[in-house]
C-alpha cells in the first residue's frame, strides 16, 4: 500500500478547463402527467433508493417506465428507466431503440443490458450487438459481451 500511495503522490496535474462550446438547443418532449410520478422517483440521489416493482406499478407502471426509457431527456433518468425495465418488464422495441448509435453511450449500454434480459433478438439486431463488443466505450463493450454470453 505504501508503494501504491507513493505512486499516487504527485500524480495529480493542475489543469485549466476548456470553455464550453455553443450547442444548439434541442427540443425536448414534454413529460406526460401520468409519467411524472415515476420520473420523480428516478431522481433518487442514490441507486439503493430506486423504486421496486410495487412502487413502479403504483406510479404509472410499465407504460410510464417505457416512456422514460424512450423519451426522457436526462441521461441518468433514462439509464435508470432502462435498467428497471430490464428487471421488471423488458420490451424488445424499447430496448432495441436505445441501442442506436445516435444515443449517448450510457443509454446504449443500458439498452444492451435491457435487451440481454430478453430471448436472443433477430439476426440483424444480434449482429449489431456482436459488433458492439468492439466499441471503444467500456460500458457498451461490456454490456454487449454480457448480452452475447447470456444468449449463448
Amino acid at each position: 500500500m505504501i508503494a501504491l500511495l507513493a505512486l499516487c503522490a504527485g500524480a495529480a496535474e493542475p489543469v485549466t478547463l476548456p470553455s464550453r462550446p455553443a450547442v444548439a438547443p434541442v427540443a425536448t418532449v414534454a413529460v406526460p402527467g401520468e409519467v411524472e410520478p415515476l420520473r420523480a422517483l428516478l431522481l433518487a440521489y442514490h441507486d439503493r433508493d430506486l423504486p421496486g416493482r410495487d412502487a413502479i406499478l403504483a406510479n404509472g407502471g410499465l407504460p410510464a417506465l417505457r416512456w422514460l426509457a424512450t423519451h426522457e431527456d436526462r441521461v441518468g433518468v433514462r439509464v435508470r428507466a432502462l435498467r428497471l425495465l430490464a428487471t421488471h418488464g423488458p420490451d424488445a422495441a424499447v430496448c432495441t431503440g436505445a441501442i442506436d448509435d445516435a444515443h449517448p453511450k450510457a443509454v446504449v449500454a443500458a439498452g444492451l443490458a435491457c435487451l440481454s434480459a430478453l430471448p436472443p433478438p433477430d439476426a440483424a439486431v444480434l449482429e449489431r450487438v456482436r459488433a458492439a463488443r468492439a466499441d471503444a466505450d467500456p460500458r457498451v463493450a461490456g454490456a454487449a459481451k454480457r448480452a452475447v454470453e447470456r444468449w449463448r
Binding site: V23, A24, R74, G76, R78, V79, H103, P104
Partner: peptide, 22 residues
C-alpha cells in the same frame, strides 16, 4: 454522464445540487 441531457450538455443545476448533497 448521468447529469447530461440527450444533446450532451450538463444540467448544471442538478450537478450543483449533487455536489452540495454528496
Amino acid at each position: 454522464d448521468p447529469h447530461r441531457r440527450a444533446n450532451g450538455t450538463i444540467d448544471t443545476q442538478l450537478l450543483g445540487e449533487v455536489v452540495a448533497h454528496e
